[in-house]
């Protein structure tokens, strides 16, 4: 009768064990910093891989950053792209919001945390760039589905507390991109144990921005020479170029209802209204 009876584990203990398990997994990985600058939101990750991204585009104004187990957050990223594309397709592109996506992620992570055999070992940021800095939104989601509405900056992953403290001290609203990147890179390179800080170079970093000055698809990866110039303290480059050389009209191109907006901005409302 009692052969199959499990030992009693209190719900408190069960949740605590799960949380400890997830936290340990997340703390093992390298950190990601998300921070606002004058032109938008920047994402900086220590990630030597060119193929396995920690930062990705979700939709026109929305991007995603994650730390933890790659297959788990990759799964969530793809789900987010599907969510956004389906919503934008069945309603309108302007109806896809970071808040909606953050809610969906929160519910998903929360359900997995309580119901599945193991919680996701991930932490996410969903960020949306607004037309002004006041309109920027940064949501941080933890393994159990808690959502935080962040202002200014977020750090997640290994050593996040120290990085957060460093950001709190040095981050200022309205920083230029070059300064914001320098701050993030300095914090990522600091040794939590208090040892000699590492100097991270462009090829150890994955950097992307949501640039509010770009039309439509505002996500852009910053890499190669541009990243080197931005990170260099001698080079005067302080922001991504606008309009930048490898930019293209893709920006104004992907919806029959909105594709020629840029040309018509002067004399009509940019509401994606019906041309056809």
């Amino acid at each position: 009768m009692s052969a199959g009876m499990p030992f009693y584990v209190s719900p408190e203990q069960l949740m605590k064990d799960r949380a400890d398990f997830a936290r340990k997994g997340i703390a093992r990985g390298r950190a990601v910093v998300v921070l606002q600058y004058d032109g938008g939101v920047a994402f900086v990750a220590e990630n030597p891989s060119r193929a396995l991204h920690k930062v990705s585009e979700i939709y026109d104004r929305i991007a995603f950053a994650a730390v933890g187990k790659y297959p788990e957050f990759e799964n969530l990223r793809v789900a987010g792209v599907r969510y956004a594309d389906l919503r934008g397709y069945s309603y309108d592109r302007s109806d896809v919001t970071a808040r909606g996506l953050a809610n969906a992620y929160a519910q998903t992570l929360g359900t997995v945390f309580t119901q599945e055999s193991k919680p996701y070992e991930v932490e996410l940021v969903v960020a949306e760039v607004g037309d002004t800095a006041d309109g920027d939104q940064i949501y941080r989601l933890t393994y159990d589905g808690s959502v935080g509405d962040e202002h200014g900056y977020v750090a997640m992953g290994g050593g996040a507390e120290q990085i957060d403290a460093g950001l709190q001290q040095d981050w200022r609203p309205g920083m230029h991109l070059a300064d914001a990147l320098a701050l993030a890179v300095r914090q990522l390179g600091a040794d939590p144990a208090g040892g000699e800080p590492r100097t991270l170079t462009g090829d150890q970093l994955e950097v992307a921005v949501l640039d509010r000055n770009r039309p439509r698809r505002r996500f852009r990866r910053v890499q190669g020479e541009l990243l080197t110039r931005l990170l260099s303290s001698e080079d005067p480059t302080a922001d991504v170029p606008v309009p930048d050389e490898d930019d293209s009209p893709r920006a104004s191109s992907t919806n029959p209802q909105t594709q020629r907006d840029s040309e018509r901005d002067q004399d009509r409302d940019v509401d994606g209204g019906a041309d056809a």
Binding site: N75, A79, Y83, A104, A106, Q107, T108, T111
Partner: peptide, 9 residues
Amino acid sequence: SGRLPSAYL
């Protein structure tokens, strides 16, 4: 619930 349907994942 508001969670992402399993098909998304």
